[in-house]
Every structure is written in structure tokens, then in C-alpha cells.
Nucleic acid binder design. Structure first.
Length: 361
DNA sequence: TCACCTTCCACATTTGAATAGC
DNA sequence: AGCTATTCAAATGTGGAAGGTG
């Protein structure tokens, strides 16, 4: 928290998350489009005059005149810093508004992007120099007489909030914390589908590398569309990551080929009558469900967090196309029976049977 | 020097949302 | 009108190539 003689206080809301990165925090910066910050900067502000008008700004401030590098598992200041350039202040998206409104809600600067391009003209891009130490500064500016006679405002710095700008993460511990805490990086977790041991990750693959020929023991299904794709399947995971040893042939699709549930809880009896199947739209990490807790009917799965039975979708509702493929003989519930809201994005749908069924691809 | 470091881009894998189709 | 299916957009860290540096 930072307070002042004016009585204004600025607090970082996600300080717990920020404080995990004390080794120190590294923040990625890119040139072309700029990079969003993670964690974001989200503050609370108090002590404002509820009826007065304020603008709030953010800028980055060089902490010293050193240039740092990561060598032998630690950061050292190996050179004099690059020239210190004029400060760019980015005005918060909310523009000018009353103190009451500022104090009502979180003060988030999630739109900020860090760029190495000093010529960037994007409104929310902040130019910073890689390998230098930076500290975010919040400026609260009270508008007098419609802003005509206002001063430059009051600045707030939080001592624990600073970072070293990098174009690639240096400290592995820092990188792990980013992956663990940023859901957009979930593919890089041990349970994710990014496989670091793939030979050509990050570079363009040939078609045969991307779509290897399956083992001969895996018969393709009778029904494929003209693209050779599973009907209605959208984002297929990389087949390289598939476990073809799980593949079943056409006469092995029976429900009893699925794992036996360990739970004694009973699945709900409500079920649709037309045997709808889930459409695999986006495939979540396997950590999102526990296949060992599937119900006896194999039509349900246990949500390990909520200890409730769910129909064959873990995050959303998209259900369609009865008997759309002959590989997966499971019946999943009708969307009318499902409480989607608790799972977030309605586009994300998957059932454990279908997930396993993908190994038939 | 030259071993190591940094930067940049395309990429695969995500989440999230908008739009097209029926 | 209400779902379903498809398409679009954005956000992550990574590998490799190329350039930089003490």
C-alpha cells in the first residue's frame, strides 16, 4: 500500500500473486504487438473526493542505470544502462470519472502491453528496454476546472512491485510460476499437451509429421467426412500426442472398455431419450476431469471439485448429432438437463469417453 | 576471438467469443 | 427462437536462426 499526505491510498489487489515472483519477477516484452503483463496490475484506490473528477495513469520507471543479464543462474548488472528515454504515461481506459467510481471498482491495467518498439503508436503499448529493471507507477490526477488548471497529479509506487524486462524467460523458477498461474499457459503444464520433447516444436512441420500414419492395427471409422476428419470435430489435438495404444477397433466400443469408476456415488437418473453425443469443440486438459470416477452407466463423470455428477460435458453444453460416429457408443445427457453456467464458456465441451474415444482418430 | 547471450518470428496449444447454419 | 456447428481472435512459452557482445 502507498498512502500520501493527501489521504489517497493505492493498494495492489493481486499482491499475493505478485509476491510469488521474487526471484525476481521477469516480464516478457516483444516488439511487434507488445506483450501483456502477467500478473496484471490491479489496484484499489481510496481516499479520493467522491464527487471530484480524476484521471489515473500508469507508466514504467527505470529503477537504475544498469543493464542486467542472467548468467550462472543469477542476474548481474554487467553494463551501464541504455539511455533513459522520456516517460510515456498511459491513461486508464475509464478516462476521467468521479472519485466515487474510481473507488468503487478495481483499478485494472490489464490492457497494458510492453513493447521494445519505441515507435509503437498503440495507445496501450508502453516502450521499455529489455534487460533493465522497471517499476510501475500509478498517477492520480485530480481535475480542477475541467482539467484546465490541474497539476501533474500524485504518483504511487509499491516497493515490491518491479520487474526485469526480458524477451525470453531466463530463470526457470520464474517461468514455472508463470505457467502454473496463467491459465493461458496451461498447455505448458505437465498435464498440458505441449510436449517439449517433440523434435520440431516451434518450427513448421511437414504434413506427415503433423499427421503421422496411425499404427496399422487402428482401423479408421466407417464414417469420416470428406476431409478425412471426425464429423463435427473442430480443434483436434495434435495427433502426435495421441496414445494410439488406446485405440479400439470397431467391435470394441462397448462401454465396458472404459475405466471402472471407483466412486460409490450414484449418477443421476435423468437422461435424454435421443442419445445425443457431445461435440468435441475444445479439448481441456485431462486434469479437468477424473476418469476414474466415471459412473457405472459411463454416461456421467464426477466433477472432483464439486463432488457432483455431470453429464458428459465438463465445461459447456454443446450436444448434438445422435449416433454421429460409430466409435463412441456413449449416451450423454441432453443440454436441457445440465447446469452449464457453473462451467464457464458454453463452447467448451468434452466428456471423458469422448476424450478417450479420440484415440481412435 | 568465440562461447555465450539476446532478439525475433512462426508455431502449437490454449481460452474465449462471434457468427453462420438449421 | 433456440440450439448447434463453425470460424475468428487473442494469449501463452518454445525452438531455431541470426545477430550481438564482453
Amino acid at each position: 500500500m502507498m498512502s500520501s499526505s493527501s489521504g489517497i491510498e493505492v493498494t495492489l489487489n493481486n499482491a499475493d500473486l505478485w509476491n510469488k515472483f521474487n526471484n525476481p519477477m521477469e516480464m516478457l516484452v516483444t516488439r511487434k504487438t507488445g506483450r501483456k503483463m502477467f500478473p496484471i496490475l490491479e489496484y484499489s484506490v481510496s481516499g479520493l473526493n467522491p464527487t471530484a473528477m480524476y484521471e489515473i495513469y500508469l507508466h514504467m520507471e527505470r529503477m537504475d542505470d544498469h543493464k542486467y543479464r542472467y548468467r550462472n543462474n543469477e542476474w548481474d548488472n554487467y553494463a551501464k544502462g541504455d539511455p533513459i528515454t522520456p516517460i510515456q504515461k498511459v491513461k486508464h481506459n475509464s478516462e476521467a470519472q468521479t472519485g466515487m467510481l474510481w473507488m468503487n471498482g478495481p483499478l485494472s491495467f490489464e490492457q497494458i502491453r510492453l513493447t521494445t518498439n519505441p515507435e509503437s503508436e498503440e495507445k496501450d503499448n508502453i516502450f521499455i528496454q529489455s534487460l533493465h529493471k522497471w517499476r510501475p507507477v500509478v498517477t492520480v490526477r485530480k481535475l480542477e476546472n475541467g482539467g484546465e488548471n490541474s497539476d501533474f497529479g500524485e504518483e504511487f509506487r509499491i516497493p515490491t512491485v518491479w520487474f526485469i524486462a526480458v524477451t525470453k524467460y531466463q530463470n526457470p523458477a520464474n517461468k514455472c510460476l508463470k505457467v502454473e498461474n496463467n491459465k493461458m499457459a496451461s498447455g505448458f503444464r505437465p498435464t498440458g499437451n505441449h510436449k517439449n520433447n517433440l523434435p520440431t516444436r516451434g518450427t513448421k512441420r511437414t504434413a506427415s509429421e503433423t499427421f503421422p500414419t496411425p499404427p496399422s492395427s487402428t482401423s479408421p471409422p466407417a464414417k469420416m467426412n470428406t476431409n478425412g476428419h471426425f464429423p463435427n470435430a473442430h480443434h483436434f489435438p495434435n495427433p502426435i500426442n495421441f496414445d494410439f495404444s488406446m485405440t479400439r477397433t470397431a467391435n470394441q466400443y462397448a462401454p465396458d472398455t472404459f475405466p471402472v469408476p471407483s466412486s460409490t456415488a450414484s449418477p443421476p437418473s435423468k437422461m435424454n431419450s435421443i442419445g445425443h453425443f457431445p461435440i468435441a469443440h475444445h479439448y481441456p486438459n485431462q486434469e479437468n476431469f477424473d476418469v476414474t470416477m466415471m459412473g457405472n452407466s459411463h454416461r456421467y463423470w464426477m466433477n472432483p471439485d464439486q463432488m457432483t455428477w455431470n453429464y458428459g460435458c465438463n465445461m459447456g453444453q454443446q450436444m448434438a448429432q445422435p449416433v454421429m460416429n460409430p466409435w463412441n457408443m456413449q449416451n450423454f445427457g441432453h443440454p436441457n438437463n445440465i447446469n452449464y453456467e457453473q462451467y464457464g464458456n458454453t463452447n467448451n465441451t468434452i466428456g471423458p469417453e469422448f476424450y478417450y474415444g479420440l484415440n481412435n482418430f
